[in-house]
Amino acid sequence: MNTLLLRTGWLSFLFLAFSKLTGQVFVNDAGAREKHFVYEVKQIDEFFERFNNDSNSFIRREYESYHIKFNLSREQLIKSLFNYESHSWDSTLINAFVASAVNINKPLLLDFYGDGWFAEADCKFEYNAAVIEIPIILRIEADASKRAKWVVAAIKPNAIKQEATVVPVADNGGKQKFINPASHANSFIELARAFEDKAHLSDYFDQSFFKRTNSIGFYNALLKGQIRFITVKDVKYHYLQVGSWIFTVENFQRKALNSGWLISHLKSATPSEKNLFIKTLLEE
């Protein structure tokens, strides 16, 4: 990719971010593909690094590799993380969000290992000879050394018959199996192995899972082989980590440069509204 192409990309990037342009900028040649690859938010990890304006971010390093000064402000980077192609935004809301995020006295930063963010994986299962969809809520569980894993935190309402026969295994600290902390990047492909691992099934679940609505029937059905995991259809992430905001991030695969993991919903929320959101999400 040449320098001009990258500069053009940046212009498009800014234009997309600020003018809400609906543009098809992708053409089938190697340079255009590479440009698209550079600007797309490819993994949720890249969403984190752009939101936090990490000094070692991929996009910074790409600019450096082409000897182009990286002079994007954090404000510009955050604004570029919104889905402009298929959503109309209230600019006042976005501006208020960005202003609070970049507040020099109290900047808002996302922490992968922190609480307050959740993955919602819309999974397909085979149940009673039919394919059903069950959204599964996962969260990152990290110890003091940042050794992390994904755990299944809750199950959304589903068609599985609830049977109160499960004997939840108490967490005695002896959990051996886990969903690796990078599993999200492959749409939790690892759930296929986890849900087949009946001997260690409870290892993959959050300790509080068994106290939540919809949990017992689902767990029993998995344990008894009454449901079979097929695949993860979609994943989205809910963030309640920063300030008085709740936002959702989804993956937009399209030819435009404004693509990949982008904010699809944003709202300001009081602490009690946040608590209610979490309770609803986790079916408590």
Partner: peptide, 13 residues
């Protein structure tokens, strides 16, 4: 394509 994105490493249990 010669560009690849490599995420940060995350320590597992």
């Amino acid at each position: 394509t010669h560009v690849q994105y490599v995420s940060d490493l995350k320590p597992g249990p």
